[in-house]
């Protein structure tokens, strides 16, 4: 597989791969490093990838496998809470409280997004998390641009309301 073809196939998947990694690892630096590692491995084995019928599914499976390897490795504690895995990288931040707070914030905002009504959740995930434009979302979902704008507006307000309510 030539360089241009490799990039045409896999570069558009980088953001999705990152989203999957942050969902599992709850750590931005780890998620970015994992995406870069997976791209390196994909490049090293690119000649074997021409037979892959679904590059998106394959790349996401690669990310999941590598994230699981990281979680299972020594020094990366894991605690299963309600079926979700939240990671605490014990060797990362010099202030463990900062890292724990960051991990919990990532978990909190992911739960908030998941608690939204289906349409709002899908639109805010596609737009604010995966980086798709409103036109791309319209093409994928069949929703009108006005409808998308409304759903995104409601979703953002709902998440903001969570942060404005007293603790």
């Amino acid at each position: 597989m030539e360089t241009d073809e490799f990039k045409d196939v896999f570069m558009p998947l980088a953001r999705l791969m990152y989203v999957e990694a942050i969902r599992i690892l709850r750590n931005q630096a780890d998620a970015e490093d994992t995406v870069q590692d997976v791209f390196t491995r994909l490049w090293e084995h690119r000649d074997d990838l021409e037979l892959i019928k679904n590059p998106k599914a394959f790349a996401l499976a690669m990310i999941r496998n590598q994230c699981l390897n990281i979680i299972n490795s020594v020094g990366y504690n894991k605690a299963v809470i309600g079926g979700q895995i939240s990671g605490h990288a014990t060797f990362m931040s010099s202030d463990p409280n900062d890292e724990i707070e960051r991990v919990e914030s990532i978990g909190t905002v992911m739960k908030l997004i998941d608690s939204l009504p289906d349409n709002q959740r899908n639109v805010i995930k596609m737009h604010d998390v995966e980086g798709l434009s409103k036109q791309e979302i319209a093409r994928i979902t069949g929703l009108s641009p006005d409808n998308i704008r409304q759903l995104l507006s409601r979703a953002r307000k709902a998440i903001r309301n969570h942060f404005s309510s007293p603790l």
Binding site: T3, A14, I159
Partner: peptide, 24 residues
């Protein structure tokens, strides 16, 4: 607080560029 929380789900701005340069 809302913007900070949402931005934690995002990669750094130049992640794709770095990956592309590494492949090159």
């Amino acid at each position: 607080n809302m913007m900070e929380a949402m931005s934690m789900l995002l990669p750094s701005e130049n992640l794709e560029e770095r990956i592309s340069m590494r492949i090159d």
